[in-house]
Design a protein around this nucleic acid. Structure first.
Lengths: 210, 210
DNA sequence: GTCTTTCTGTAGCGATCACTAGACAAATGT
DNA sequence: ACATTTGTCTAGTGATCGCTACAGAAAGAC
């Protein structure tokens, strides 16, 4: 539990590592995998797709990442850190639930239509209709956790008197979540950034003005 | 072009049809296929899944429906007639765009959480992350057509003076579409009918009171 | 140098995919 | 009766799936 670090996640070459060093950069390979899963989803991205896109052989992929499922788990985690953190940041940094949701909707419109990236949200689309139930369940939890986080932020505002006491926090959170999820779908269906932004502004008008 | 009717779609047994009659009911087999594709999506439903669920052998399936792709096309068409027609009906029957959208959102909450049926909307989920691009494109068109239909209904109301002249019809239609699509996702993620109904009522509050 | 360790490339594993050839079964037409 | 037409069944097609055995290549340890 001291020197034993998982050899798969280690950068391979720096001092102490014996044997032939890895011939590819693990991080950039993971980034390619993120893009592939993001665009085509878990099932529709085959291991041979991955090896071609990542530029490595299958045995190298399995040595570095475990198996397809473990690679996807790592992709989901890294995607969360790199591309889906704007939600948590907004909830943490904005002074009110309304401001947080407003920022989430606006940033979602931008994030989901960023050029040179797959459109929409990986959490929403990469594991729908999944043969492996656990993979689908993993992203389902991510979606429900996101809605629950908004809900508890709303509850905090209600408790602080910033929102009416009879506010239906759960429904309000589900509404925000539904709009975000619908925006992701529409981004994949070809909606422009301007269209999603206009959509988001309309959705925001349900919130009582502060 | 007169007596030649596609033998695959004909009920098989009534007078005039020679040869061994079909040993299963084509309509109920199609209904089973609808449920299977609705629940698991196009790719995740294998032909052997279908033959097991429909209770027929693979050659019978291919003789009666063509191939997997043609069966799915027929499933989509029948699903549209049986389960997704509430949208068109609302747009045709309600006196205003607002009333139509209100009815669509409320009926979607019910339709997407009907017991003993797959949750959510087949159009929204059955062909995401699809290996075959045409299949995915087919349902994408359905989704975009639905939004366009709402948009033109809104434009009619604007032209008739029932909505302000500066109303952004496209954004308003996309908003309604996003809410419906998000409701479908959340139904699949476990939301109850009551939760979706509450969500829908909130979304409706963006519309100016008539 | 040689030994050990680790990674890479080839080549192929068994399982499943969508799909079908061919033999038999069951109806109608004459 | 018999021929014709059509459906069903068994059994299997080639292709692809995720994954890996094995041999050779490239590094540190001695």
């Amino acid at each position: 539990m001291e020197r034993t670090q998982d050899p798969r996640t280690v950068p391979a070459s720096p001092a102490g590592r014996r044997g032939r060093p890895r011939s590819f950069d693990r991080e950039t390979a993971l980034e390619k995998a993120i893009m592939a899963f993001w665009e085509h989803g878990y099932e529709a991205t085959s291991v041979s797709d991955l090896t071609r896109i990542m530029g490595i052989g299958a045995p190298s992929l399995y040595a570095a990442f475990g198996d397809k499922r473990a690679l996807f788990d790592e992709v989901v985690a890294e995607y969360g850190r790199r591309y889906a953190a704007f939600g948590e940041r907004a909830l943490a940094e904005e002074p009110t639930a309304r401001a947080a949701v407003a920022r989430i909707l606006r940033e979602a419109a931008e994030c989901y239509t960023a050029p040179d990236r797959p459109q929409g949200c990986l959490y929403a689309h990469a594991a729908t209709n999944c043969t492996s139930p656990e993979v689908g369940e993993r992203l389902r939890e991510k979606r429900n956790e996101a809605i629950a986080a908004v809900e508890s932020r709303i509850r905090a505002d209600i408790a602080a008197g910033r929102l009416p006491a009879d506010t239906d926090a759960r429904a309000l959170a589900r509404h925000a979540g539904a709009v975000v999820q619908g925006m992701s779908q529409q981004a994949r269906d070809g909606a422009s950034r301007a269209e999603l932004t206009a959509l988001a502004e309309i959705a925001l008008s349900i919130w009582p003005r502060t």
